[in-house]
Design a protein around this nucleic acid. Sequence first.
DNA 1: TCTGTATGGGGAA
DNA 2: TCCCCCTACAGAT
Length: 415
Amino acid sequence: MPEGPELHLASCYVNKMCDGVVFTGAVRKSEVSKSPDVPFNSEAYRITATSRGKEVKLTLTPIGGDSKRRVKAGQADQPMDIIFRFGMSGFFRLTSEDELPKHSHLRFYSKEKPCRVLSFVDARRFGTWHPNGTWQPDRGPCIMFEYKSFRENVLSHLSDRAFDRPICEVMLNQKYFNGIGNYLRAEILYRLNIPPFVCARTVLEGLESEDLCESEKPVKKEFSDVKGSDRITKVKVKEEKTDLLRLSHTVPLEVVSLGGKGYDPEKADYSGFQAWLQCYSVDGMKSVRDHNGRTMWFQGDSGPMVPKDLKSPKAKKRVKKEDDHDYTDKKKVSRGRSKSTLKRKLIKEETVIKTPKKEKDARLKEAGSKRRKTEKPQEINTPHREKRSTARRRKSSSNDTAAGSQRQSRRMSSK
DNA sequence: TCTGTATGGGGAA
DNA sequence: TCCCCCTACAGAT
């Protein structure tokens, strides 16, 4: 569940689990990963982590070497930073060598016998890492740990065209909201009763660059130009001492304060987090797709900038489906999926890892399957639709085959 | 067996 | 703006 809080909890996990652990040798990458090799090799090194928004930095620090003594050829004598982004499914886990998690794509080996392994695990492989990296320059200050500069960065750039967009979409722009993701934007807007598809600038332009809660000044809210904003007017009174930028800071910190329970793979327990959610994927809430195709959960009005003429066939299809059903039905479906997703997290991940060869075989098989599947007659579609549905079918079927061959591999290896 | 969905973001046009 | 990267699962067919 990687948004800002989870990335931070991941860095805490690394610092806690790797405290006192000495790592050794090379950093190993899985066969299938397309991320870069990590050219680091040290007889003895330690690992520490920090986070900033939706990035984690691991620092590998060689130890024990006398600075005057020559380091072996090919061995690092300088620390290396590796910047990680987690995509949709990344996390770290420290395990024994024979319990490597499935989808462990980057591995750091400890010096002990038997050794332990710190893995970057990422089922969907949307995550990336950058050896010798720095915090991505285009990303803004961290919403949790650089609050003042985060706030200033937003309010001093309101003339940027980025703020022409709906507030819910701007909140996913990491140039300004580094650390906010899909569940956080829903929770924050819900608490302020701000319709998600109101122009971002309108929501933000009345805010003071100084955090009024900290300076104890009276809060001045300026939502008067938002039409149909009865709810916002109420909020003006109710939420007198906060605003969207402050909540973008405090709400993620609430998740951090829930603790590492949701992250700690040994005690996978998402019930606390699930109970914490007030809006995202919650019964009775509405949801629509934003202009980027991401689901926005909210209550009440959607706001004037809600997508209407959706260009993508996928989105059109969704809209048609939504026209055919009332929100209640849709909620049931969405809620069911979401619950199942959370439930899935509760199931301990398989600890068997495919050997590189088996991974390769699975991919070869997958490629063969792709070719076969594309020979199937195509549906009658608009050209655009045709392209996408074919792609979907191809993806889906190839994945089935890949998954099947993985299952087979596991069966074989368990025999 | 097929379809839709998932806490993200890079890159081409 | 749109497509794509990829796996895993639930629900529909």
